[in-house]
C-alpha cells in the first residue's frame, strides 16, 4: 500500500512540475524581443491586411492567456500547434527528428554508463596507485573538454584522417543510422563519462572505508564478492542521483553535437527555431525536455527505496 502511495505522490509532483514548466515555457515568449509575424513575412514590406491575416491565422491576435489555454487544450489532443518556419504541424516536425536525438542520447548514455562506471570502479579499487592517478588525470582532462571541441577533434581524426566513420548526416536505415551516430555519441559522452567516473569513485571509496566491508572481509568472503555485494551495491545511490540530473545536460549538449555533425535532431532544431522565433516549436521542445527530465528523476526517486531500505522506511514514515 505504501509503495502505491509513494508512486501516486511522485506522479502528482510530476504533474505539478510539468504544469508549472508549461506556464514558464509559454509566457517566456513575452520576454523575447522580436515579432514572429515579421519573421513569417520574411522582411517583405507587408500590407496591413497581410499582417492581420497572418496574425489571425496563427491565433496571435488573442490575448496571451487565451492563447495559453488554447495551446494547453490542444496539447491534450496531441496538437502542438503549427511551426512558423516549416508551415507544418509541430508534431510532424518533431516526429521526423526525435529518433535521431533519442538514438544519440541513448547511445551516449550506454557509453557513459559503461566507461564512467568502469573508470570509477577501477580507480576506487586502486586508490592512490598508478591506475587511479592515470584515471583521475584523464577524467579531469575529459571533463574540461567542451563537446564542440571534442566533436571537432573526433571528426578531424576518425572521419578525416582515418576515414573510419562518416563525419556528416544521419544516414539511411537503422544500421547506417547507428553507424552515423557513433562519433557524435562519443563526443556527447566524453564530459559526462568524467562526471560519472568521479562520482562512482568517491561513492565507492566512501563505502570501502565502512566497517561493514571489513566485517564482510573478516568472514572470508572473496574480494570480488565483497566489492560486488557490499561496496558497489551500496554505492549506487549517489551514482543514480547524478545520472538523473545528467539527462538534462545530455539533452542540452546534444544540440551542440548535432550541429557539429550536421544531424537533423531535436537539438539542432531547437537552436534553429530559437533563431527564427518559431515559438510553437521552441515551446514543444522545451516542454518535452522538461517532461523527460522530470520523468527520469521521478524514476530515480522511485528506485532509491528499492536500493536502500532505509529510504523506504523514511518515505513510509512521512
Amino acid at each position: 500500500m505504501n509503495i502505491f502511495k509513494l508512486v501516486a505522490r511522485k506522479l502528482g509532483t510530476l504533474l505539478v512540475t510539468v504544469f508549472a514548466a508549461s506556464l514558464l515555457v509559454f509566457f517566456s515568449r513575452a520576454l523575447v524581443p522580436g515579432d514572429p509575424v515579421a519573421f513569417l513575412l520574411r522582411g517583405r514590406k507587408p500590407s496591413p491586411e497581410a499582417i492581420a491575416e497572418v496574425t489571425k491565422q496563427f491565433g496571435l491576435d488573442k490575448p496571451m492567456w487565451q492563447q495559453y489555454i488554447d495551446w494547453l487544450g490542444n496539447l491534450f489532443h496531441g496538437d502542438l500547434g503549427r511551426s512558423l518556419q516549416f508551415r507544418q504541424d509541430v508534431t510532424t516536425v518533431l516526429a521526423d527528428r526525435l529518433p535521431v536525438t533519442l538514438g544519440l542520447v541513448v547511445l551516449a548514455g550506454v557509453l557513459i554508463a559503461i566507461l564512467g562506471l568502469a573508470a570509477g570502479i577501477i580507480a576506487a579499487l586502486n586508490r592512490g596507485r598508478t591506475a587511479d592517478r592515470a584515471i583521475l588525470i584523464a577524467m579531469t582532462g575529459l571533463g574540461a573538454i567542451p563537446s564542440f571541441v571534442g566533436a571537432i577533434v573526433l571528426i578531424a581524426v576518425f572521419a578525416v584522417q582515418l576515414g573510419w566513420f562518416p563525419s556528416y548526416g544521419s544516414g539511411d536505415g537503422f544500421a547506417d543510422g547507428i553507424f552515423h551516430l557513433i562519433l557524435p555519441s562519443i563526443a556527447l559522452a566524453l564530459t559526462f563519462v568524467a562526471l560519472v567516473a568521479r562520482v562512482t569513485r568517491s561513492s565507492m571509496l566512501d563505502q570501502l572505508e565502512r566497517e561493514h566491508v571489513e566485517v564482510a572481509t573478516s568472514r572470508g568472503l572473496p574480494r570480488s564478492r565483497v566489492v560486488l555485494r557490499h561496496v558497489l551495491r551500496n554505492a549506487t545511490g549517489p551514482i543514480l542521483t547524478v545520472s538523473g540530473v545528467l539527462v538534462a545536460g545530455l539533452l542540452v549538449a546534444s544540440s551542440i553535437v548535432e550541429q557539429a555533425f550536421g544531424l537533423a535532431g531535436i537539438g539542432s532544431l531547437l537552436v534553429q527555431s530559437v533563431d527564427r522565433l518559431d515559438f510553437p516549436v521552441v515551446q514543444a521542445i522545451v516542454l518535452l525536455i522538461v517532461i523527460i527530465f522530470v520523468l527520469v528523476n521521478t524514476i530515480v526517486d522511485l528506485l532509491a527505496p528499492l536500493i536502500d531500505p532505509r529510504v523506504a522506511a523514511g518515505a513510509a514514515a512521512r
Binding site: 565502512r210 566497517e211 561493514h212 571489513e214 564482510a216 555485494r229 557490499h230 551500496n234 531500505p309
Partner: peptide, 13 residues
C-alpha cells in the same frame, strides 16, 4: 565488531 549499526550492511537484510 564494536558497532553493529555500521558493521552490518544497512542495505541488506
Amino acid at each position: 565488531f564494536q558497532d553493529p549499526r555500521s558493521g552490518i550492511n544497512p542495505m541488506r537484510s
